[in-house]
């Protein structure tokens, strides 16, 4: 039966487009999402950031007006400053803490699985849950401040959620609690990837453990650090849910962040052009972080 068909159909090469038709059909979602949503959506947003769209998007060009207004809005400046402070501190602390915990777990300890489970479980929780728990623990009337005062430190003041100068610390405590576990796991994987002979060699040479970490292990783990760095940074840029749950940007505008600025501008203040300009700035930030990283990855692959 199949042989009868052979003669005619098999002589001509099939039309290129229709070869492996099923696989091409199955790739349609990828093409639609990649081109239609990611590329198209990004281009659309960037284009509309140069317009005066308010309630509805429209193409009336105003050049860089939106950006000028953005950079002279106090709320945006505060958002950027918060993000910068939160970003730098949380980056440094997450990396240090993550590496430190990973190094501890790598010391052939007992109950490693238990400790790892404990350090990582917050990562399974949403930022909303994280934010609400810490909001409660940091509550000045019932939380840490009241406990310290109850213990006799009657002048002890620690109410980060109500103090504009400290509010970032509140966010950091919660953010670190949620996110360090992930970095720890990545660092631990990196440590496990290091050849055991290195440890033997440094023991033979009589180099102390802490020194081995600093002069041998950390330089060897550079790629892991870079991955962790990219991860933490792009997570920081997205910081939104935590702020909404913990402080709603308050007190005042003390804990505003860019992602929240974009959301509020787009959906509550209905100033679309302004929101698009702000989100384009976020994209630029990510690009600034990402491009050197992508370049490095690319160069490594080449070698």
């Amino acid at each position: 039966m199949s042989r009868a068909r052979r003669g005619s159909a098999a002589m001509r090469p099939p039309i290129r487009l229709f070869r492996n038709l099923s696989s091409k059909l199955a790739a349609i979602p990828m093409v639609l999402v990649g081109l239609g949503v990611f590329v198209g959506g990004t281009a659309w947003t960037i284009v509309h950031s140069f317009t005066d769209s308010r309630l509805l998007p429209r193409l009336r060009w105003v050049g860089l007006d939106q950006y000028e207004r953005l950079w002279s809005t106090r709320r945006w400046l505060v958002s950027i400053e918060n993000l910068a402070v939160y970003g730098v501190v949380s980056l440094v602390l997450t990396m240090c803490l993550g590496f430190f915990l990973a190094a501890l777990l790598d010391r052939k300890i007992r109950y490693e699985d238990t400790f790892r489970t404990i350090f990582l479980y917050p990562f399974a929780l949403s930022f909303i849950v994280t934010g609400l728990v810490w909001q409660w623990i940091l509550n000045p009337d019932f939380g840490i401040q009241s406990i310290a005062r109850g213990l006799g430190f009657s002048t002890f003041n620690f109410d980060p959620l109500y103090n504009p100068d400290l509010v970032i610390i509140g966010l950091l405590i919660a953010g670190l609690w949620q996110g360090t576990g992930l970095i720890m796991v990545i660092m631990l994987a990196g440590l496990r990837g290091i050849d055991e002979d290195i440890w033997k060699a440094t023991r033979v040479d009589g180099i102390p453990v802490w020194k081995t970490y600093i002069i041998v292990i950390i330089p060897m783990m550079k790629p892991v650090f870079v991955t962790a760095l990219v991860l933490v940074t792009s997570g920081i840029v997205k910081l939104y849910d935590l702020v909404v749950a913990m402080t709603s940007g308050g007190p005042g505008i003390a804990s505003e962040v860019p992602a929240k600025y974009v959301y509020d501008t787009l959906f509550t203040r209905q100033n679309l052009g302004q929101g698009f300009a702000a989100s384009t700035m976020m994209l630029v930030t990510v690009a600034i972080i990402l491009i050197p990283w992508a370049y490095m990855q690319f160069r490594e692959k080449r070698q």
């Binding site: 093409v31 990649g34 081109l35 949503v37 990611f38 590329v39 990004t42 992602a259 929101g275 989100s279």
Partner: peptide
């Protein structure tokens, strides 16, 4: 297309919210 898709993972959600 795969490369484009992967790049999409790094676009902040805020950029794509309105589109």
């Amino acid at each position: 297309f795969f490369g484009i898709l992967l790049l999409g993972a790094f676009i902040p959600y805020q950029v794509l919210l309105y589109p």
